[in-house]
């Protein structure tokens, strides 16, 4: 039996129930995140949770941290401001696939490039849930959605490859089924200086399943388990064999200088170049 940690972190005044549908993976992922934060013994006064718009972005309202539910796609730049305003804070960003890679796609690659010390939990359910099941940039080609009635002709992003290419320090992927693995990734990400992305694959049993007949929440959870394959095993497999798979593991674990450290050094240089004004 797992220790009940998550209840200790719920906001005292917030009224429940939450907004997530039965069978949604968002709550499971958040549970793992809270366990990671708890095990690292970070003071909850030092955490700021920032999110965008979408189902997963509703998460911060439930947890007893300072939090900012921002505008659609903009969680990362809001969080960038928070981090630079007070670099001592641990800033965790919660975002979905539509929020982070469509409307917020530009911010995503630039946060990776800057290697700014934000910890991004990118919950990927391959669809826009809150707005009613439209296709997202990670929806597989051929899948159906409210706006893809003839099947999606777009090609999906591989979020982890995108993050690695753009320069993120730490990049990992797991699923809502693999609660211990993803908790471990969360811990590593929070400890890691610089920008970290953890892509959490989840299921949307309400809308994705409605358009694609993927079954109930439990069926989709089982599919996450069955489709997951480690990055090590995947290395020896053909693209054809990997087509239906979710490659899990750590895609990047670098040690590039974090933005806030670089800026601190810049400030020291700037302070030294300060001169007093001469008198008239």
């Amino acid at each position: 039996m797992m220790e009940d940690i998550v209840h200790q972190y719920l906001r005292p005044k917030k009224k429940f129930p939450h907004v997530w549908c039965p069978g949604c993976g968002d709550g499971v992922v958040m549970n793992s995140l809270i366990r990671a934060i708890h095990s690292l013994k970070i003071s909850r006064d030092n955490i700021v949770m920032v999110s965008g718009i979408g189902c997963s972005s509703r998460a911060p309202v439930y947890f007893d941290f300072c939090s900012l539910h921002s505008t659609h796609g903009r969680a990362l730049p809001f969080a960038t401001g928070v981090k630079l305003g007070n670099p001592k804070l641990t800033v965790i960003v919660i975002s979905g696939d539509g929020d982070a890679t469509a409307i917020g796609g530009n911010h995503f690659i630039h946060a990776c490039r800057r290697n700014i010390d934000l910890k991004m939990v990118l919950i990927n359910n391959n669809i826009y849930g809150m707005t009613g099941g439209q296709y997202s940039p990670t929806m597989p080609t051929g899948a159906y959605a409210a706006t893809a009635p003839y099947g999606n002709i777009d090609r999906p992003f591989d979020i982890c490859k995108l993050a690695v290419a753009a320069g993120a320090n730490y990049v990992a992927r797991s699923t809502a089924f693999h609660t211990f693995q993803i908790e471990k990734y969360f811990k590593e990400a929070i400890m890691k200086p610089g920008f970290a992305v953890i892509e959490a694959m989840t299921a949307c049993p309400s809308l994705y399943s409605f358009y694609n007949k993927t079954g109930k929440g439990t069926d989709m959870m089982k599919a996450l388990k069955d489709r997951a394959i480690s990055i090590e095993s995947a290395a020896n497999m053909s693209p054809e064999d990997l087509k239906e798979k979710i490659v899990t593991g750590i895609f990047a674990n670098g040690d590039a200088k974090p933005y806030t450290v670089a800026y601190q050094e810049l400030m020291e240089r700037a302070e030294r170049s300060r001169v007093d004004e001469e008198s008239i």
Partner: peptide, 25 residues
């Protein structure tokens, strides 16, 4: 940065507005 402040050139105008709100918080 001479006076203990921070400057950032963001990736776009929207991000710049978002960042000043985040920092103000």
């Amino acid at each position: 940065p001479m006076y203990g402040g921070r400057f950032i050139q963001m990736e776009d105008e929207i991000a710049a507005m978002a960042a000043i709100i985040g920092a103000s918080m």
